[in-house]
Design a protein around this nucleic acid. Sequence first.
DNA 1: GAGTTTGAAACT
DNA 2: CAGTTTCAAACTC
Length: 517
Amino acid sequence: MESCKEQEQSVMHSDVAVMSPSQSHGSQATPHTPSEREPSCHHSMENGGTGARFHSVPPPNPQPTLSQFPSGPFADFSFLQSSPFQFPLDPIPSVGTRYPVGNTGASWTSEKAGHFSMMSAELCGAIASIIPDSEEENSLEKGFLRQDHLPEQRPLSRTDLCPPASMTVFLKPLDPPEEGMVVPGATACQVLRSIDSGQQMVHCEPPNYMRSSSEPQFQGNVSEFGTPFRKVNAIQMGKVVPSSVPGLCPVLPQPYLAPPSLPLIRPTTTLLVPPTSLNSLNSGYNFLSGPCFSQFHQTPCPVYPDSQPKMSPVRFSATYWDAKSRKPCSCTKSQCLKLYCDCFANGDICSNCKCINCYNNTEHEYERYQAIKICLDRNPEAFRPKIGNGKRGEIKGRHNKGCNCKRSGCLKNYCECYEAKIMCSSICKCVSCRNYDESPERQTVVSAGSMDLPDPGFYPIAKCQKKVVETTCVCLLAQAEEAEKEGHTEAQAERMILEEFGQCLTQIVQSIFKSGS
DNA sequence: GAGTTTGAAACT
DNA sequence: CAGTTTCAAACTC
């Protein structure tokens, strides 16, 4: 019997020579500080763009450009008009501010919330530069490069309205404001990322009515906001904070009124959180996440069906779910409320599944919520992606827990590593493992075609270059389609495409400079 | 499609 | 934390 650990030494050399540290066997032994992280998308662009000089072309029109495309599971749902780190241009509403219900005056209403605004390229770049590469890559990949794996659409449910992970959270008092109700000052809270742990933190400016209190500010985990706030308004600020529970979101009633001065361009959504839940749920669960239908689906916005995205008519769908997560389950005893259920584990509600007595649906939101809570109580990381890109410090392309296979040799889909098309690592506790690079058995499986060779995109550099190229092509095609649609002459179309290309290049170069610095 | 095997999740 | 049971997916026939 030889374990992965025993095999590791012999494997390391070849892996390291070929693969990035992120995929190298046993790479967890290598210090993984932020400065030593895997080559990022930016880095790869740097590699691919050496020597080139580009002139910055200020975007004359808010055409969708490379970085303006949404990224992240839900990023296509909305865009922001203000930096996540540049808080409301308008003052935070003060105590006593009245917010009339309805679309009147300056009140921020649901209709207005449906308005989409574009994020500046610079802002996007800035945001991109502060998020971990894994997320960026992930978001790019899932956002608009996995077009060939788009799952089928499913009926929208309230759960679908769950807002994406957010950079900014607005904490609100317990009850939604009613007409004429005095609303204490809303609080802009910034979700920060602990560099050390990757844990999401929330830093809040104190609400106005708390300024006089002894509590200077909030700073802590989201879960620490159990009281006095039970409702959390969340907006997406254009970039995702990694979600440990994609798609899991408890009850989602109608979005409600938000203060007029907050620079929101999408509806805030109220997460109804049971009184004790915020305290009991630790940071492993991100409430501010959930599947959301894309504006690009040509599907009416679930909240504001009449709203029209201001995006270029790009003909692809950005969607959260990948093909695997939509595989129907066949649970019979778990009610699809345990991690045995892939749908539940992936944060999806069951749809078109073959399960029996399913509670993982919108009709059983409370049970579902309780089940989520139980899972998180048991294991705060329960919903974190098993393959390492869930948080800073995790190694991409490696199972975060490792497998425990004993009889399959890790060469069958029973093995989670094999299933994820990654090699076992020293973290695995498997027995008689054959899922390592130099394994003759694995070579046989690979050559027989039963196991895919690593996607060229598996290697970060190649992956990012490919992404950049593909995304640029998408931008150019969109521009071409728009030119055609608007009846421009061929010369005009050429010009438009070239301008778009210039913008893409500009952003690529900006990214290079940012990563270089 | 039924039965078996497998390993993760859940439980004790 | 280790051992056992439960569970659903993967696999075989």
